[in-house]
Each structure stands twice: as structure tokens, then as C-alpha cells.
Design a protein around this nucleic acid. Sequence first.
DNA 1: CTACCTTCTTAAGGTATCTTAAGAAAAACT
DNA 2: AGTTTTTCTTAAGATACCTTAAGAAGGTAG
Lengths: 189, 189
Amino acid sequence: MKEQLKTYFNRYVSLSDNEVENFLSNISIKVFNKKDCLLNQGDVCHQRFFILEGLVRFYEIDDKGNERIDLFGVENWWITNLESFINETPSRQTIQALEKTKVLCINKTTLESLFESIPKLERAFRIITENMLIAIQRKDEVYMKQKSKERYSSLVNNVPRLFQRVPQYMIASYLNITPEYLSEIRKNS
Amino acid sequence: MKEQLKTYFNRYVSLSDNEVENFLSNISIKVFNKKDCLLNQGDVCHQRFFILEGLVRFYEIDDKGNERIDLFGVENWWITNLESFINETPSRQTIQALEKTKVLCINKTTLESLFESIPKLERAFRIITENMLIAIQRKDEVYMKQKSKERYSSLVNNVPRLFQRVPQYMIASYLNITPEYLSEIRKNS
DNA sequence: CTACCTTCTTAAGGTATCTTAAGAAAAACT
DNA sequence: AGTTTTTCTTAAGATACCTTAAGAAGGTAG
């Protein structure tokens, strides 16, 4: 686990063993079973989670009671509701484990004090946030510009593994299509 | 101008006069006329721009030759093609001035060396990036979940000033609606 | 093995939105 | 003031996608 984290951070900055130890001593590990929620809609998100193993979804429920999935989180991703985390406002979204999921948890004040003591960690988070921004902009490019059928094939081409781990109706929700129409699309392709 | 920048950064971190001076001595100022491009599709984006005065749009052209506006940049916003800037890959988007626009320009290596010499500046950019991420997630919430009519009224309510500065067909593009249909929506509301 | 629950498919009819085409209005030049 | 260019509107017909409803298939639990 220490190795996994070190390898991960070394993509962005070089942390010494000491710094990794310091980081680790400030975080906790939690395991969520399938269907458990890491964060409930309405609650303030006090933590950032780093997914060691497993899979989660970040979703919201609209006025008609339909779920809409914004994002899946897999191994080696940080996940949180950033708006709720930063402003300490109630989350409009839920984060739920879709498999048994093991995460690192770090809360806001701890993270801020770690940024003081390990500046390279703040750099890593600056870069990680930039990468998240790029990822969401890329998703938008696809989703704003393309029709359902094309969004579906983008996903098939870019993240084929997802289809083995997630039921099709959740893929549909993530693609912003009804499950019925996704079924239709798949029949004709 | 120095004051504008100082006020801006002080939202996030407290920079001393010296640090602001240091920052200023490393940047340049440019003025773009209406319709000038800050960045052309196909070019690598080597700079980040801070808008002192004016208005720009960030847009791309799809396969059918239609423009799609991702984002407007107004006073006190940083704008860049982050993906192109970070990976040094050709930009799929163009950044164009919609009014006479005065910007600060800072290039990548300069910014990185400033991060070394002024750690608080890196913190400011970490926070600025987080806020951009939140803004884009909020936009997505509206755009994925809501129908055209609702997207239009969200924009009217949240950024009414935009309508005085931008032609309606660009609003339509930003809302991901055809100009004809936006016209229809406005008629019935 | 049977029963239940979750997920996926099919099809008919409806609606939001686009496409095309044309003209009106407004703004920008000369 | 007149001409050109840009922007906005209107309307008819097309299409992508949704809604509803029902049943099929597959998994899980008693």
C-alpha cells in the first residue's frame, strides 16, 4: 500500500520515504462494501478519498427521481465532492461503492497542514487537480458535441473495461441516455 | 493594474508587495483587438492569460464546420487551453477576443520557476484550479440534467450581463442549442 | 428447485430539438 | 443615406431520443 501510494505520487513529484510516512500517518483506511455510501447527498463532504482497490460512482438524483451518474472512480483516483469539501456546503451528490472498495481517507484540516509541511504534496495536488480539469473538459468535448451513438462508441473505445464492471443501465446514465435507448443503440451496432 | 492583481491574489493567499513585483516583472501585457485570436486551433498553447479587461471565447469547430463555444472568459479570469499548455500538444480549440481585450501573459517555464520562488503562488494556482473544476462541474450539472429552456433560464439568471456583451447566436452555441431554437425559446418565455 | 429481484430488451407513440430555407432587422461600413 | 454584412426570426418537415409498458433473461436467496 505504501508502495502503491509512493508510485502514484512519483508520477507528479518525488517524495522521500519520510514524506510518504508522514503522509500515511495522517490518513486512515476504510473499506466499503458493495452499495455502501462514502458520502450521502445532503451531507457535507469532509474528506478526500484515494481509491486503493474497487470502484465507486458519483451520482445525483434529479427532480423526477432519476439517477444521473457524473463520474466513476477507479483504482488510483482521488474522489470527493470538491464543491462540498471546499465550501463545506451540503453535497448534492452521493458517492457509492459499486464493488467492495478500499480507500484512503484524508480530511480537510489534515490535508491543509500537510500542504504546509510538505510543499511538494501541494504541488502534487495542484497537478492532480489540473489533470482532473483536463479530464472533465475532454468528457465535455465528447458529450456536448456528439450524439448518443458516438458517445457510446467513445466509451467503448476508451474504457472498455468499464463494461465488465458496471451494469449497462449505469453506463446509460453516465452517457446521459435512457437504458432503453442504449439497448437500441447496441442492437444496431 | 498591480492593485487589480494584488486584490485578485489576496482572495486566495496573501502576497507581499515584493512578491507581486516579482510576479509582475516576469509577465508581459498584450492587447488584442476584437476578433483577434489569443490562441489558434492547431497551435500549442504556451501561455496562460489573465484577463484584465475585455471578453474572450474558447471554442472549437466540429466536423460539420459548426462552432461550439465551451467557455467565455471575462475580467479577472485565467484562461488557457490547459491540456495543450500542460502536454504541449496542439490545441483543438481557439481562444478569440470578442471585445478589445487586455491580458497578462505568462509562459510555462516562467510560471514553474515562479512556483519555486513563491510557494504561495503555487497555492493560489492550486486553489484557482480547484475553483475552475467546481465551476465546470456546476455547468455540467445544469447541462446534462436540464433541457434547453432550463439551460437558457439558468444563464439568464446567473449571468445576465453576458447577454449585453455577446451576440445571441454565441449564447446559443454555449448553451448547445441552435440559434433558431433559442429564438423559438425566447419567443415563448 | 422455485421464487424473487435485478437487469436487459422490444416496440409504439410522443416530444424536444435540429435542418433547411427564407426573409426581417440591426449594425457596420462607404 | 445607401449598401453590405452580421445577426435574429419564422415556419415546415425531419430525426434523435424519451416515455411507457411489458415481457425475457439472468442472478441470488430461501
